[in-house]
Amino acid sequence: MKILNSPAKASEYRKSLKGSVGFVPTMGALHEGHLSLIKKAKSENDFVIVSIFVNPTQFLPGEDFNKYPRRLEADFEICKRAGVDAVFTPTPENMYSEDEILIKAPKVKGYILEGFFRPGHFDGVLQVVNKLFNIIRPTRAYFGKKDAQQLYLIKQMVKNFFFDIEIIECDTVREKDGLALSSRNIYLSEIERNRALSISKALKRAAKLSASIKDTEKIKEEMLKILDVDEMQYIAFVDRDFNYIKEIIPGNTIILIAAKVGETRLIDNIFI
């Protein structure tokens, strides 16, 4: 497995490859969710490249950039065992310059939900993914549905900028008790983790209710009875194009939650 620590080395390596390339962009602290993306990429491509980069431009002031879990050597071992061909580990210094041309998230769908609570977050996400795509030039790139709005916006960027890349959507991976896997779960105490389970339980309940109830406000009322969080930021019902909906559309609805348990901000969703 090759370790590529600069854009130049990654670009040079990419030029040497003959065949399809699957790409899994990550911020490290790899878990089973990341592994599921890697396994799918391996099954569909001749080569797999994983990036590990805690991207500073997608963190807002006061967020957890400095304490975000970093365990590079352990991540290398995980990638090696999973059969990854190369890991790209750039630094902020070799990814960014002082006076950059910027990419902006769309004015509407980049500033609702996650974009409302984290204004400018998606500017940073799209900026770094654009760079990664240009460096790695993958055949296919793999993203989890847990970050549903991010996934939607990346797909829009690929379409708007005419990238010749296939975006592969992968289902959210959960613990046996239903908690969506996230690198930030390590912040939760045992008590907080038990309370965090109310998020996936509320989503599961909503999915079950949607078979007979189409009014989203009625479903939301039932979800709030289950949720045990410290700060409820949003419960939202949207279609696959992130338009708000008032009634469930079978096969074209996403229910999303963002909430804080203790000091940890968690997001989750369900596609129905």
Rank of each mutant, 00 (worst) to 15 (best):
K104R: 09
Q150D: 07
N185V: 06
K18A: 02
P7V: 09
M95S: 02
Y234G: 02
D230V: 06
K67A: 05
T264C: 11
L153C: 09
A148H: 09
Q149A: 12
G124T: 05
K201D: 06
P119F: 13
K201R: 15
R118M: 08
M223D: 01
E247N: 13
E44N: 08
L224A: 03
N269D: 04
Q58S: 03
S198M: 11
A207V: 08
Y111I: 03
V173S: 11
T91I: 08
E192R: 11
I165S: 05
L188V: 09
C170E: 10
K260Y: 13
E98K: 15
D46N: 14
A196S: 13
A82E: 11
Y234H: 14
N160H: 12
E98L: 13
L209N: 02
S11D: 03
T264M: 11
A82P: 00
P106Q: 13
I167G: 01
L179Q: 11
N55Y: 05
G62K: 06
A148N: 07
C170W: 11
E190K: 15
E166G: 02
A82M: 12
D123F: 06
E63D: 05
V50W: 00
M1R: 02
E100V: 00
D64S: 04
K42T: 01
S51K: 07
D64E: 04
I52D: 01
K40R: 14
Y234Q: 03
D64L: 08
I49R: 03
K42E: 01
I270M: 10
Y142H: 10
K39M: 05
D171C: 08
F53R: 05
V21Y: 01
P92R: 15
F65W: 02
F162P: 00
F271V: 15
A105I: 09
T139K: 13
D228Q: 13
F237V: 06
T139F: 10
F122P: 00
L209E: 05
V24H: 08
G33T: 10
A236E: 14
I257L: 12
L197G: 05
I135C: 03
A207F: 12
N94A: 07
T216R: 07
N185D: 06
H31I: 04
Y111G: 01
I165R: 10
V87W: 13
L197Q: 09
R174I: 12
K218E: 11
P250I: 14
N243E: 10
A41I: 06
G28H: 02
H34E: 03
R70F: 03
I186R: 14
E77L: 03
L203N: 06
I135D: 00
K42V: 05
E263N: 12
I101A: 01
L224C: 11
I101H: 01
N94Q: 07
I245V: 14
I272M: 13
V24C: 09
I270Y: 10
S11G: 01
N45G: 02
